[in-house]
């Protein structure tokens, strides 16, 4: 057993995902408190080349699980073997579908305690303590492993819980994990279909303009695009808007979409259903435009504007452009 803090570092298209950089800085922070090292478990296209550079973001070591464009889950057995060899204090995993699949593999193969999705994780009295909003945010719980629980604690971490460390320079010591055969890791990508237009990664946006059923059409979303551009942000959506085909599902925010934590979320024509709310309630500032003065989103927005989005959004876009000069 060690006091190291491992983290999952996903690569795509030759570069680390933002989650990898966030967790590198989180792992470094926790490792400073535990007296161990921050160790990356790097996987996906670009991992072998790019793992060393995670040192600049806080990783002391990086173990490359594999470099292939394969389902993330297939790196599970190698990840479990690397974790079993070190028995670190914690493994931080991004609370994304891929991160959860790999975390689940660790829990199932290694019989380990699992936490999350958490909004905070720290080392207290030499053990891991997490903080989680549960039951649709109705209660905040703090949890720890039971006494005598096996190490590590596997922790799912929400996007934007940690801020990537910038301006560092170090280089992580890189090793390559041995491939491990496991019947569990047999999934393959049979077909890949790319979208025609580029799809942004909402988890990386610091400003999000989200539209719902009230936006009415794909053309209606063009107004939101312009506002988002004026604010330097990205467009998101409710499930109703994605179901209607006005935007791709990658832009859906909520329980079955992305969980986002931007500094500004501006929702237009969205009622604020609980399944949507759990995906955006930790945004720093929430502005809602809705023509229904009793819409549920009015109960938890910081600023609630009662009015017609088609009238207000173009004027707001002009006003912001004017002020920005």
């Amino acid at each position: 057993m060690t006091t190291d803090i491992f983290f999952l570092a996903e690569f795509a298209d030759g570069a680390p995902q933002r989650s990898a950089l966030e967790l590198a800085s989180g792992a470094a922070e926790l490792a400073a408190a535990s007296g161990g090292r921050a160790v990356a478990l790097a996987y996906g296209p670009g991992a072998a080349e790019g793992a060393a550079a995670l040192g600049a973001h806080g990783a002391a070591r990086a173990i490359v699980l594999g470099d292939a464009a394969a389902p993330a889950i297939t790196f599970g057995p190698a990840a479990a073997a690397a974790v079993a060899a070190d028995q670190p204090l914690a493994v931080l995993a991004p609370a994304t579908p891929n991160g959860r699949d790999l975390a689940a593999a660790l829990v199932g193969i290694g019989d380990l305690p699992a936490f999350g999705p958490v909004r905070a994780v720290r080392v207290v009295d030499g053990t891991v303590e997490t903080e989680q909003a549960t039951l649709q945010g109705s209660v905040i719980t703090t949890s720890r492993p039971v006494d005598g629980a096996p190490q590590p604690a596997v922790v799912l971490v929400l996007a934007n819980t940690f801020t990537p460390a910038e301006g560092g320079s170090g280089s992580a010591e890189v090793t390559t994990a041995e491939a491990v055969d496991h019947p569990f890791a047999q999934a393959t990508i049979a077909e890949s279909h790319e979208a025609e237009a580029k799809v942004v990664n909402l988890e990386e946006a610091t400003v999000i303009v989200a539209g719902g059923r009230g936006v009415g059409s794909a053309e209606g979303f063009e107004q939101l695009n312009q506002l988002a551009a004026a604010l330097g942000g990205a467009v998101g959506a409710s499930r109703a808007a994605a179901d209607a085909g006005w935007v791709p599902y990658q832009l859906q925010i909520g329980q079955t979409g992305k969980v986002v934590k931007p500094s500004l979320y501006l929702g237009a024509g969205i009622s604020g259903a609980i399944q949507h709310r759990v995906g955006m309630q930790t945004a720093e500032h929430v502005v809602a435009i809705n023509k229904d003065p009793d819409a549920p989103i009015g109960e938890f927005a910081d600023l609630f504007v009662v009015g017609d989005l088609f009238q207000i959004i173009p004027k707001l876009t002009d006003e912001i452009r004017r002020r920005k000069g």
């Binding site: 019989d111 305690p113 699992a114 209660v139 703090t142 949890s143 720890r144 600023l303 609630f304």
Partner: peptide, 25 residues
């Protein structure tokens, strides 16, 4: 369970919502 809850509490109170209504666009 390999995990235990050590504390459960209500979420932090939110500042009240500011409203803009009954004004022109």
């Amino acid at each position: 369970a390999l995990t235990r809850v050590t504390d459960a509490r209500p979420p932090e109170p939110k500042p009240p919502t500011e409203r803009i209504e009954n004004v022109s666009a």
